[in-house]
């Protein structure tokens, strides 16, 4: 379950699953980056960001995802973007995020 006011993050073994939703596109989305850093510090080696409920990603969202990538790269953790719609996947490709994270389209 996700909503636009709060990012949901849960841990499944060594994987942290983050539901980005619209929260990602606002300054409050910085919390996602902080939570991801926390999960990595707690031993997660895989960050899975779900875009199931995310229609578009704006520049703030891209920046926050870069923060997630930055957090993961420092700990050699893998980053996967899942349930990405084709337009967003295309944007990630164009901007070069696909070089740093695996992208799984919806």
């Amino acid at each position: 379950m996700s909503n636009s006011a709060q990012a949901e993050i849960r841990r499944e073994g060594e994987t942290a699953v983050v539901y980005a939703n619209e929260y990602l596109n606002k300054i409050t989305g910085e919390k996602i980056e902080r939570e991801c850093r926390d999960k990595i510090a707690q031993g997660c080696s895989r960050l899975l960001v779900s875009f199931r409920d995310t229609e578009i990603v704006n520049s703030i969202g891209i920046s926050i995802l870069l923060g997630v990538i930055d957090a993961a790269s420092g700990a050699n953790a893998e980053v996967v973007f899942t349930d990405v719609n084709p337009d967003t996947a295309h944007l990630f490709e164009t901007l070069g995020l696909s070089r740093h994270a695996r992208i799984v389209t919806a």
Binding site: I27, E30, N58, S59, I60, G61, I62, S63, I64, L66, I69, D70, L95, G96, L97
Partner: peptide
């Protein structure tokens, strides 16, 4: 400070600048 942080995200995110 919130204006600076938001602007910073917009700047980095516009061209996907890593740092």
């Amino acid at each position: 400070h919130e204006m600076i942080r938001t602007s910073f995200h917009l700047l980095l995110g516009s061209l996907a600048i890593m740092r």
